[in-house]
Amino acid sequence: MEIKTFGDLIDWTRQLHAHLAKCLTESAEKQTSERNSALLDYIAGYESQLAETVAEFEKQADPKVLQTRLYDYAEHKPFTPGLACDARFDTFSFDEISREIFAFHDQIMDLYQSLTGKAEIEGAKTLLEDLLALEQHEAKQLSSQIGRMADI
């Protein structure tokens, strides 16, 4: 997906979370460990919900901001949705799954943080700050839930 506008960026983020949810659901079915399968299922549901939440940002954002060109995106070189998840999750341990998921979220947060610092239009900066806050909040929530699952 070529990202030219802030609207494209939000759509890309939504697609990324949805793609990860789909991949994790598939991997959960192939996991031999019941505990790891349950973790993958939980995170898949979480990612699906997050994709829907990100889509709401797109619906509620100022159309002018969504159409604003995003010139600094190419410099960050983020990963593509097709690479966000692969068959490794089929055999990953609980800890490996957790590390990979948090690395995924860290990359998105790093991108938003980088773009926030470069945003010159106040509406665009606010939108990026809101998206960053959402990702940070959701990562904390997910970390808490995974921590509880690890204790079981």
Rank of each mutant, 00 (worst) to 15 (best):
D130Y: 10
L9G: 00
Y46H: 13
T32F: 08
E75G: 00
T53I: 00
E29R: 15
K125Y: 10
I43H: 04
L142S: 05
F94T: 02
L24V: 08
H19T: 14
E138H: 13
A44S: 15
C85P: 03
D106F: 08
M149R: 11
E26A: 10
A51I: 08
K64Q: 10
L127G: 02
R35K: 11
K125H: 12
I121E: 12
R99K: 13
E2L: 02
I10C: 01
M109P: 00
A51E: 12
E120W: 12
S98I: 13
F57K: 09
H105P: 02
A38V: 07
V54S: 01
A119C: 11
A51H: 14
K4Q: 12
Y112C: 01
H137S: 13
A74H: 14
D8M: 02
A61G: 11
E52D: 15
D86T: 09
L134A: 02
R14N: 03
S37A: 15
E138T: 07
F57S: 03
T126N: 03
T68W: 15
Q141K: 14
D110Y: 14
G7Q: 09
E56I: 06
V65G: 02
M149D: 06
L16I: 00
A150T: 13
F94P: 02
K125E: 14
F57V: 01
I146L: 08
A55Q: 11
L131A: 11
V65F: 00
Q141I: 10
V65Q: 04
E135N: 09
D95K: 11
D151F: 10
Q67R: 10
T13E: 04
L24S: 04
I108Q: 04
G147A: 11
